[in-house]
Nucleic acid binder design. Sequence first.
DNA 1: GTAGGGTTAG
Length: 689
Amino acid sequence: MLSILMRPTAKSLPPKPLSKLTLRTTTTTTMKEPQPFDETTTPHADRLIATLDTNPPIKTLRNLHTHLILRSLAADPHTSIKLMRAYAARGDTVTVRSLFDGIPQKTVVSFNVLIRSYVNNGLHREALLAFRDMSAHRARPDNYTFPCALKACSCGGEGFLVVARQIHAAALKPGLDANLYVGNALITMYFKCARSSADARRVFSSMARDVVSWNALIAGLAQKGESVEAVTALKEMVGAARRVEPDGGTLASVLPALTSGASVDDIAFVGGVFDGMRRKVSVAWNAMIAAYVNNSMPAEALMIFNRMEAEGAEPNEVTYASVIPACGDHSALGEGRRVHEQVEAKGLRPNIVLENALIGMYAKCGRFDLARGVFKSMRRHDIVSWTSMVSAYGMHGHGEESLRLFEQMLGSGLSPDAIAFVAVLFACSHSGLLDEGRGLFDRMVHKYRIVPRLEHFSCMVDLFGRAGQVEEAYELIKTMPMNPNDKIWGALLGGCRAHSNTSIGLIAADELFKLSPKESGYYVLLSNIYAKAEKWDKVETVRNVMKIRGVAKAPGCSKVELGKTVHTFLIGDQSHPQSKEIYAELDALSARMKEAGYVTLTESALHDVEEEDKEGHLAVHSEKLAIAFAIINTEPGTPILITKNLRICDDCHRAIKVISAIAGREIIVRDTNRFHRFELGACSCGDYW
DNA sequence: GTAGGGTTAG
C-alpha cells in the first residue's frame, strides 16, 4: 500500500521531483505488489509533508496519510491543516471533519481551513455552522475567516441575506471591512443574496479597489442580467484614472453579459480588451473563445484558438470544451478532428464534458458515424451524452432510431429532463412521427412531471403542422399556458405552407410580423403560401410591404470546408477565385440535369430573387455554388458537406437530388435545423422538412 | 499552516 513512497529510487531524487514521481506512478503502482519496506530509502518527513501541497490524487493521499500516521507525524497541527486542505481538494469533507475533530486546540487557522473546505465542496450550511461554533472555542474570526463565511452565504443565495448581514456587521467591529478580500467577498455576497444590486454597488464604491473588486462588480451585474451595466463597468475599469489592468477573470466575468444578442460593438470592445492584455492567461483565451461561440461567431472562435496555439499557450480542457462546439457550428470537420486528436494525445479522456462536445460536433458536421463512435467508446453516459445522440439521430432524420435510443436511456435508469424531451420531440417532428410524439408529450407531463416549455410546444406545433393537422396545431397554440413566441408561430406558418392553409397562415403571419417585423424568412414563407395558391397579387403585396418596412432578405449563404479552410458562398456569388470554373461546372451539370428530366421550379425561384435575375447568375443559390466548388476540388466519390444559413428551398432540394445521382456523390446539406442526405437521387428527409 | 472574482458539453 505504501509502495509508492518507498521506491528504492526515491532517495537519489532531488526533493522537488518527488511529488511528481508520486503523482505519476500512482496509477501504475496500484497494480503492482507492494515493495518491501526499507528504512534507508524512506523519504524525509519534510518531503512527505511537502507532497501534501501538490494536490495528490485521493489514493496517493491516503497512502501518504497512513505513512504519516505510522511515523507519528500526522498529529502535528501544521500537518493536520495540510492534510485537511489536501482532502478538501479531493472532495473528502468527512475526513476533513475528522481531522479537525482530532485537533486538540482549535485555532482560527484550523477553523478557516474547515470552513473553506465546506464552502468549496458546496456545504455552505456546514460552513456557517462551523463559523458559529468559533466563539465557543474562543477563536476570533479574522481576515481569512470572513471571506469564506461570506462566500458560504453567497452560495446559499437569497435565503442567507439575514445571516450575511450579521456577518458583515461582525466584520465591521474589528475594522475588517477595510480588508480587500473581505470587501470583495461582500460585493459578491450582496449580488448573490440581495435582490437589488444597490448594496453591492455601495460596498464597491466605498472601498479601495483592485482587479478582483472590479471583476466581482462586473460578474455580479452580468449574472444579474444587467448586461448594459456590466459592459459599462468594464469600460469604466479600463478608463479608470487609477488604472487597474483587466485580467483573464475580467473577461470571464463579463461573459454572461455577452450571451446571444450582444451588440457587435460590445464584442469588439471585449476583443480589444483581450488584445490589449500583455499577459494572456489561459482563462483569458478560454473566455474569449466562449464569447465568440456564444455569439454565433465560430470562425472568430477558431481564430483565437489558432492564435493561442501559435503563441504557445497551452489549451486546457475548458479550452477544448469551448472550441469543439465552435468546430461544429462552423462545420469545420477537419479542424474538429484535429482538435479531437489533441484531446486523445493529451490523454484528457475519459472526460464526459469533452466527449459530449465531440458527439455534438461530429453530428453537426454530418459525421453521424463518428458521433456514434465517440458515444460507443465512452466509459459512461450521462443525460447530456444521451441527449446529444438522440438529437443527432433526430437531425439526420432517423426518427425511429432516435426514439429507440431515448427508450434505451430510460432503460439505463436515467430520468429524462426537459432538454432530453426537446430532443426526442424534435426528432419525432422531423420524421413525421405524430402518434409517438403525442405519447411522449403525455408521458413528459404526467409521468415525469415536467412542465412543458415553449420549446416543447414548438415541437408539437411543428409535429401537427407537418402532419397536416394545422387546425390542431393552431388549437394547441390557443390553449397553451404561456404567450407563444415567434418560433411557435413560425412552426405553424411552416405547416400552413406545406399544406396550403392560407387562412391560418395569415393569422400566423400577422402574429409574426408583430413579433419579428424585420425577419425576412417569415415574409418569404407567407409569399410562398400565396404563390402556391397562385395569388400573385398577394405575392406582390408581401414584397411591397417588405420594401416599405425596409426588411432586407437575409442573403443565402453556404459553407463548405476544403482542407483547413471553410469557403463561404453567397447567392449569385462571383467573388471566389475559382468562380469561372464553378459556373462552368454548374452549366455542365445543368445540361446533364435537363437530360435527366429536371425542370426549374419557378415557384420558389420567384420569391427568393427579383424577377429580372431569375435567368442570370444572380439567381444561383449559394448551395449550388458550394456543391459545384466541392465537385471541382475533391476526388470523384468524395462525400460533400454543405452548411446553409437558411432553410433549403424546394428547387434546390429537387436539384440536389438529381445532382447526387448524376455526379455520383453523397451530398449532405445542413440547413437551419436539420440534415438532408442526398444520395442516388433521393433525400433522407423523405421530402418532408 | 489559511482568504476574494471568473472560463467547459445537450
